[in-house]
Write a protein that binds this DNA or RNA. Structure first.
Lengths: 250, 250
DNA sequence: CAAATAGTGTCTCTGAGACAGTATTGG
DNA sequence: CCAATACTGTCTCAGAGACACTATTTG
């Protein structure tokens, strides 16, 4: 077998198969205290009238990251996403019933998604709670698989990167941050210990290396009762890693 | 702009650009106490006579994982790799000077690589210490970038998966395992603390949840002096995560 | 014997978690 | 007042690391 090496002597259409390459984006946000994902309802075959991840074809003159950025902009109007990372490539032979399509999935996290509107070839576009999307909807193509992988990756990245801050506005309360971890990890955290973890030790605070910094501003207590929470902003501590480890399920 | 959605009404060559899709594999092993990578010397243009990662074209009737498995088999003769994970997709417009090529990189870890021999379109094939490959060689295409990403990913996966065991034979000494972590993380670990970490607490050992299990067999002390080390095999504890955390560089 | 590697014991420090208690709001 | 949320204080426990010490080999 002489197919082991990357390039045959000459590039010729008979030498290698070609594929369409698309980019699909899993756009996550937290709304109403629940983790939600942007989906579009297809208005074309195949999988007509089914929900799918937003995406589109990669252009030859752009990188994969640029294609993802462009799709995110076109879909949500967000120009400079704070978190947009490549998730995985999917290339199963039967993942598109008509032709060979390799898709590269991206993961994006946003504090809020503006108006989501359907494009010309989509019947609808909206946010779906991820739980509902996976359990009540049947997603087009292998997008349920992609969404599952995205959730696993997000849970991992909470433990390794500053992903959590990408879900938050510039000023936020600690319980908002806590619910980011709780929603994605599917756990319940002790508010007292959470505060201590993100505020860090006194030493870290003096070094300017804490994960959050109090602003002195306070939010209103919107619900029924409760002390008004302080508003925080992101600190320098994230460069050395996140403040929390995922609880062991032992 | 109507390119935002995944599929145009009809598939037609004029509707979307096509790409060649390749799979490149970063095959890592530890030999002579150093982390090494399999490279092939190109015998074709472009990048003739430069070293590159082994790889080849994806076929339309196989998945990406199957393509990677096939390439690994063809390159090293290994059939069932204990660790073969997708790393990342690369699709920069100029990464191949002749045509649009999107490549999907994979990461493989092996306890030993058998005879590495050059294919028909390669001038040579051998193991290179990764340090030398990155510093002394100029790799073809964007393969230096890929190799760098692979090393970062390997370091991460040591902290999250059972990757370390994939570098080891069925029976191994603890200092062999220790050098896996030391080589990939670029750190020096205390042998005493390492032993305690991988053997785990007495409770874990009784639960059958420790990371290594003594076999009662002993290796010969090959170097000049030293107590013969016991041989261990992999335990059940890896299901709950690795035994070690990467040392903080603070 | 010394040198080298394998492995144990033990101490300290730090961070995670449990949980009681205080502060401040709405009703 | 009570309920709810936002914090602070304090205790305990387990794991990480430093490091002294023992065990067993080669030369």
């Amino acid at each position: 077998m002489n197919t082991r090496h990357q390039n045959p002597p000459e590039y010729d259409a008979t030498d290698y198969p070609t594929f369409a390459v698309t980019v699909d984006i899993v756009i996550l946000t937290i709304l109403d205290g629940r983790l939600q994902v942007v989906l579009v309802k297809r208005d074309e075959n195949p999988y007509r009238s089914m929900w799918a991840l937003p995406g589109g074809f990669k252009r030859p003159d752009e990188t994969l990251d640029e294609a993802a950025k462009r799709e995110l902009l076109e879909e949500t109007g967000v120009f400079a996403p704070s978190h947009l990372t490549q998730l995985k490539a999917y290339g199963d032979p039967d993942r598109d019933p008509r032709t060979n399509v390799v898709t590269v999935a991206y993961l994006a996290a946003l504090p809020e998604v503006g108006l989501v509107e359907a494009g010309s070839d989509a019947a609808d576009a909206r946010l779906w709670p991820v739980h509902d999307a996976l359990n009540d909807l049947e997603l087009a193509f292998d997008h349920a698989q992609i969404l599952n992988d995205a959730l696993s990756r997000a849970a991992e990245q909470l433990e390794q990167t500053s992903l959590a801050t990408s879900f938050l506005r510039p000023k936020f309360t600690l319980s908002e941050m806590q619910s980011v971890y709780e929603e994605i990890w599917g756990v319940v955290l002790d508010p007292a210990n959470f505060q201590r973890s993100v505020k860090g030790t006194a030493r870290a605070a003096l070094n300017g290396a804490s994960h959050v910094v109090g602003t002195g501003d306070y939010a209103f207590s919107t619900t029924r009762g409760g002390r008004p929470p302080e508003l925080y902003r992101v600190g320098q501590g994230w460069a050395d890693g996140p403040p929390l480890r995922r609880p062991r399920n032992t």
